[in-house]
């Protein structure tokens, strides 16, 4: 580090100021305030007497919040699916079949599709009267499924949209890792008599492990924070079919109960934080080349 001696004393401040102001005001300070609001009865119209843990008590004793929280946790089931589909898609692109360069863009189409557009398209497929899915099920003699009105289908419907919209992005992450596996290593293993599956299991998989873990963690965190897919796909379904963020939206911006909504947000934050810490803790204990959490350490 030899450079950096010649800059003006205030230069770092000037360069950093915009980012520090935006992230500081909206996220750091916002976070401090949300924690405070959650302990008050702040509303859209009046504000804010300290009420202690009342909001939390109310949330945890009413069935609605608990139902939404359980749904949010159940939503995590989309994580292994998304990682699996993303891996298969990445392997298709990396397999060098004809046209595989195009596959990358095609798999990315759902990623760029605005969520509301994706949700509308899926709503059309889910339509309980003449949607494609129920029509197809009918051919097989299977009864109509209440994709948009019945539990647990409502949650599954939203999860499928998340899966559809998300796998292309994670494919890109995994593709980077797959392409970084040295060809010589794979060929050496094959020469030593390893089967196709053996090469995958013992050469490819270990070296893309960090990327795979990143995909799991990032997709799990965004599953907990899901809003758009749930809000639009199963619009009209009762709130207790939905997840925590749509409930926060309802409490804050439809009912004006900022204190209660903030408490719901804080509970969600604790769950997200818990998941992140769990990941760090899991990452510490394993000796297989992933030294410090997800973003730390070298891939190989």
């Amino acid at each position: 580090m030899s450079a950096g001696r010649e800059h003006h004393r205030l230069a770092p401040l000037a360069f950093l100021a915009p980012a520090v102001v935006v992230l500081g005001v909206f996220f750091a300070w916002g976070f401090a305030r949300v924690a405070w609001y959650s302990l008050t009865d702040t509303s859209a119209f009046s504000g804010g007497d300290f009420v202690g843990a009342d909001n939390y008590r109310r949330l945890l004793t009413t069935g609605l919040f608990v139902a939404c929280l359980i749904n949010s946790v159940a939503y995590l089931a989309v994580t292994p699916l998304i990682a699996g589909v993303a891996l298969v898609a990445a392997m298709c692109v990396a397999s060098e079949v004809k046209g595989s360069r195009w596959l990358r863009a095609v798999f990315f189409l759902p990623v760029v599709t605005p969520t509301i557009v994706a949700a509308l398209a899926w709503r059309a497929l889910y339509d309980e009267n003449d949607g494609l899915l129920n029509t197809a099920l009918e051919w097989f003699g299977l009864g109509p499924v209440g994709w948009l009105s019945e539990r647990p289908w409502t949650l599954i419907s939203a999860m499928l949209v998340t899966l559809w919209k998300g796998f292309g992005f994670y494919m890109l992450v995994l593709l980077g890792a797959l392409l970084a596996v040295p060809r010589e290593q794979r060929e050496a293993a094959a020469l030593d008599g390893a089967s196709r599956w053996g090469v995958f299991r013992h050469v490819v998989l270990p070296s893309i492990r960090p990327a795979l873990v990143l995909v799991m963690v990032v997709s799990a965190i965004s599953a907990l924070k899901v809003f758009d897919e749930v809000f639009v796909t199963i619009r009209g379904a009762p709130l207790e079919h939905q997840t925590v963020v749509p409930l926060v939206y309802e409490l804050a911006f439809e009912q004006g109960r900022f204190g209660l909504a903030s408490a719901a947000g804080c509970v969600l934050f604790v769950v997200v934080l818990g998941l992140s810490l769990l990941n760090l803790w899991l990452g510490r204990g394993d000796g297989q080349g992933r030294p410090r959490g997800v973003s730390g350490g070298k891939a190989r």
């Binding site: 770092p12 950093l16 980012a19 520090v20 992230l23 005001v25 909206f26 996220f27 750091a28 300070w29 916002g30 976070f31 305030r33 949300v34 609001y37 965190i221 924070k225 809003f227 963020v245 926060v248 939206y249 804050a252 911006f253 900022f258 909504a261 903030s262 947000g265 804080c266 969600l268 934050f269 997200v272 934080l273 992140s276």
Partner: peptide, 27 residues
């Protein structure tokens, strides 16, 4: 304080926008 600033900025990644929408809205 360079490294401190960096870590603090990165720490805001831990705060989901969905959690802070209410204060953000008021700001």
């Amino acid at each position: 304080g360079r490294d401190t600033v960096f870590v603090l900025l990165l720490a805001t990644m831990m705060i989901p926008e969905q959690v802070v929408v209410v204060p953000m809205f008021r700001t």
